[in-house]
Design a protein around this nucleic acid. Sequence first.
DNA 1: AAGGATTTGTACGTATGTATG
DNA 2: ACATACATACGTACAAATCCT
Lengths: 247, 247
Amino acid sequence: MEQAGEELMERRSGVALWRQVADRIRLGISNGTLGDGSKLPPEITLSQQFGVNRHTVRAAISALVQEGVLRAEQGRGTFIESRKRLSYPITTRTRFSTGLKDQTRARRVALLRHTIEPASGRVAEALRLEPGAPVLRLETVSEADGRCVSCGTSWFDATRFPAFADVFAETESVTASFARFGVDDYVRRSTLVSARHADADDLDHLKLSPGAIVLVTIAINDDLEGRPIQFSQTHFSADLVELAIET
Amino acid sequence: MEQAGEELMERRSGVALWRQVADRIRLGISNGTLGDGSKLPPEITLSQQFGVNRHTVRAAISALVQEGVLRAEQGRGTFIESRKRLSYPITTRTRFSTGLKDQTRARRVALLRHTIEPASGRVAEALRLEPGAPVLRLETVSEADGRCVSCGTSWFDATRFPAFADVFAETESVTASFARFGVDDYVRRSTLVSARHADADDLDHLKLSPGAIVLVTIAINDDLEGRPIQFSQTHFSADLVELAIET
DNA sequence: AAGGATTTGTACGTATGTATG
DNA sequence: ACATACATACGTACAAATCCT
């Protein structure tokens, strides 16, 4: 079998070869075409398959180990640390959404930062406020079973919900915080879903390696009178999460 | 203003600085935080903003010009050749979904392949058939304004919908084809959304370059009696499409 | 129990690409 | 266009852990 490698990698693309190899390995894992599902082929085999040096494969594997996707054991092989993707429900009635409750043991939401700022055009439009009106901006990271699954920024009308950040820090839940302000129920008005490469902030917050993908949701929640109360942009680690649309 | 750059670029990440800058410019364009929407700030300003050398910004811009995202004019500036992302609606009532109709001039769906095959476990479960029952598998690519936006595979009960493929080839529409079989309306029962790197087939069908991202939807449609009639997996080019969830 | 085969980990040297000034 | 510094990619060799006969 003198079958030379496939030469599918791009050499002067601004993306290092080892990163491209890492992406291919991630892909091979997610669609099950690489290895037997639990163990990766040896480095030599991979390097021939991808037409690169073994060191390049090693750099790729090392990044994926760092990320928790793989586990390497000297003399034995490289193994896939697979966990099922968490299914994050997107429902109309946010209140009745159990979120990830049933699928994880430990779920935590950390409050990264909160500031009062004047509403930018986009935020003002979403919350139906005057541009420049004071809004609370709340940045959070949520993790499940010790893995960072999403990071997000939300904006609230600072006049209607004073000291919302303190309440949130205590309850660790937007729903519970709204309840303190007399908003017992609210609905998801609109949701946009897109996907892109993780940016520097995502890499930091979600502990990803470059080239990783995030699912981006941009959503507006209304109270039951139809007034917008929350505008949010959330980035989910695409390797860990899928969105379940419940229509 | 001695405000030094933000140092947000990562230096040892396997992604060349100029490519990271290119990605940030693309992001800045898509959310409108860069320039005035049609013209980019001068290279010097950008290099200060990103904390990199002007040469690096120039490399980034040159790549984006190559890609058709920007247009540089000597002495005048760098301009944005942007098209908005297509917004693909995900609604309960598929029938009333206008799809991309309002957003594009020319929308075409090409039938790539169709075969009758025994239902695999996953397909059988989704369509509530016996495993091995004959199902029609239909592979399509759809393009809008000359750009390939999605490719997908759908499965239908071959017994209930004989010669569905021929009808589809004629009508180029699943909804219209169902109507020929007396199914005038149907609903989207469940939709899973995830994201991953494009695989070899995606690159081929959607004319993407390696490293590109696809949004993956896995959906089941029911007729009005609640019987599943279509199981589909669709890959959208994430650079061109966002999904608008209408709950 | 011993030894060879397999597989991951480490070290060096060289050439090319990338980023800055 | 040039010079410098660092990152990336390849090649080779060998060490360390594990597996199999």
